[in-house]
Design a protein around this nucleic acid. Structure first.
Lengths: 132, 132
DNA sequence: CTATACTTACTAATGAATCAGTAATAAAAG
DNA sequence: CTTTTATTACTGATTCATTAGTAAGTATAG
């Protein structure tokens, strides 16, 4: 029996989606250029990945001169949520607070970020109170 | 040109590591049993994955009767860190605080957890001051 | 000691994913 | 209109990852 086809974005697909999310609708050449320093890929390789993403319904394209300009359809927020759920399940025993703690340890937050997070946490504490 | 071999744990490998991390040193049968409800896999499939993990140096085994009992060598904390780094890069523009905010929105923290997190953040704010 | 049951070791099959080349196409330049 | 050039569409190669079967080995039970 073979492996099952992946339900989530594959590594190559994710790499490309990331570019589209970050720099907005892009042509093949623009994606290649952005990826080049990190992962040098042939023009047609990226083209193929974009075609697959389009087949899967994650992106779209419009004509732009003789080229195609690709737009994301898959919402980044949704992708983030499913990624977070995966991480919680696989690495943090489904404990959001444990994950929060580890994040705090990992990324050194500057004072401004800490202040904003404390405010966000304070806001989180409020809406729990119903009525009055 | 072929695909590059993956540097991180693959999906199947991660699934097995997760079991070993959660329930401690286990035999093949124990791993299969734990995985069964979620993903029914043949005994030998899990055995193969364990062999690969051992070849890669991520786990170890000791004899137990006629069976092998597998132990993790790869530290879970280290795996968590590299997973977090990957997530930060791919989904959260390398902003830990952004990731934390999204995590707060997603995983509902209970009041007790929020309180502890606020304390932890408060402590994080202090050590920045050098001397006196 | 022999038979039984369980476990491992080895091997193979298969499709998934990734990478890229060649041919066709369409726009742009002359 | 013709030539050049950029781009896409199609196709193929490669190997990785996953799955599991068969044979060999080893402990346990009778």
């Amino acid at each position: 029996m073979p492996r099952r086809p992946s339900t989530t974005l594959t590594e190559a697909e994710l790499r490309v989606m990331q570019v589209l999310w970050k720099q907005g609708p892009s042509t093949v050449a623009e994606v290649v250029e952005r990826l080049a320093p990190e992962v040098p890929l042939a023009y047609t390789t990226v083209l193929t990945t974009l075609r697959i993403l389009e087949e899967k319904g994650h992106i779209d394209h419009t004509k732009q001169g003789r080229a195609h300009r690709y737009h994301t359809l898959l919402d980044r927020g949704e992708a983030r949520r499913s990624a977070l759920r995966f991480m919680l399940d696989r690495f943090f025993d489904n404990s959001p607070s444990l994950m929060m703690v580890k994040l705090m340890e990992e990324g050194d937050l500057d004072l401004e970020e800490i202040r904003r997070l404390r405010e966000a946490l304070a806001r989180d504490e409020e809406p729990k109170v119903k009525g009055s």
